[in-house]
Design a protein around this nucleic acid. Structure first.
Lengths: 200, 200
DNA sequence: GTCTATACAAAGATAGAC
DNA sequence: GTCTATCTTTGTATAGAC
């Protein structure tokens, strides 16, 4: 029963998705093939096609899994109402820090966004929704911080959320190429200093 | 005399580079082919191979041309010593605004950075140098602005330069997918408000 | 559910005529 | 400098045995 949107995936299907995710994060969607995945899993190409008939099916499964994992992470942060704004942001950044700690991974949706017009059409709205969800989460966090007096009143939550999210995506992109370990940390530190410092 | 690093390129070679650049900015390097270019130019694949024997040769020519054009733009800004910091930044942003005005183009090096590990090895250091040059330029602009009292003294020019450059790259990436015309303008406005406002 | 085998198209690249 | 023709490899995908 392959490629069913919300069926419990078999273990093999999960390993395929995980491997594909890593490969896309390092090389991009256009550049990877069923052969690349089958090499890593010691499984045949045809077996991958059994679970994911087309490359579009596989891509959709990968991006849905990624988006769902990060959504759960964000929901968990929101659920803890006692957190300060800066603690919320630190927890939000954790997955991005983890990516920055790898030698060559970037955000899956950042990688896909760079080649969005080369993607199978059904993948695109999922990437789009991912960005919208993250920017909305950041905007809400900032608005809450202003209410609580933890964030400067003179910032625009929507504009700042866009800057923050864009800079995190861009920082991951740039740091991999620049091979500079501090790129992402510098950006996070600057965001905190400029946007999450208590009002003067 | 094709593929010579600094020979004057023929007009056909120039048209090939220009077309390839646009295609890479919209679809990515891995996703485009000699066939795509030959279709657009009403020329045969073999003719492109005459000018650029391998895809790596073509990629190098494209990224070198792009980097050189933006380098000239930055040099022209630096040459005008009378500009205020905010005027310098506005002129710096002009090429990025132009990209944001297209339906589907992002920074060439942003697109390439997303698939850096899938690129022919000789292309990579050129992308890397592009990022280093831009961040250094922004850092210098900010440091000058602090000296002139146009930029807040409490910011770290290196960290802020990284945030600004990352956010511009990220904003182009996100706005294309989000199809949101204001993404890039919002980010530029927020940068100005937070980093280029006069000291309190 | 995984395998072998294969079909079919597209890719990068070269040879050689004009 | 551009063309036609062709080679070789790779990629996505399917058929059918086990």
């Amino acid at each position: 029963m392959p490629a069913k949107a919300s069926a419990a995936p078999s273990e093999t299907a999960e390993r395929i998705v995980e491997t594909a995710m890593e490969l896309i994060q390092t090389r991009g969607f256009s550049a990877i093939s069923y052969q690349d995945i089958s090499d890593r899993l010691a499984i045949r190409k045809a077996s991958i096609h059994y679970h994911f008939p087309s490359k579009a099916d596989l891509g959709i499964a990968v991006v849905e899994a990624y988006a769902a994992a990060l959504k759960a992470h964000m929901d968990a942060i929101i659920a803890d109402d006692a957190l300060t704004s800066i603690a919320m942001f630190d927890r939000y950044c954790q997955p991005f820090r983890q990516l920055a700690a790898t030698p060559d991974k970037i955000c899956l949706c950042g990688a896909l966004a760079g080649e969005i017009l080369a993607l199978p059409e059904p993948m695109r709205p999922i990437v789009k929704a991912f960005f919208a969800v993250h920017e909305a989460w950041l905007e809400r966090m900032l608005a809450r911080g202003i209410e609580r007096g933890e964030v400067r009143k003179d910032i625009d939550p929507a504009g700042a959320a866009r800057l923050i999210f864009s800079s995190l995506q861009g920082a991951l992109l740039v740091r991999r190429t620049a091979d500079d370990r501090n790129q992402v940390e510098d950006v996070i530190a600057t965001i905190k200093a400029q946007f999450l410092a208590p009002p003067a």
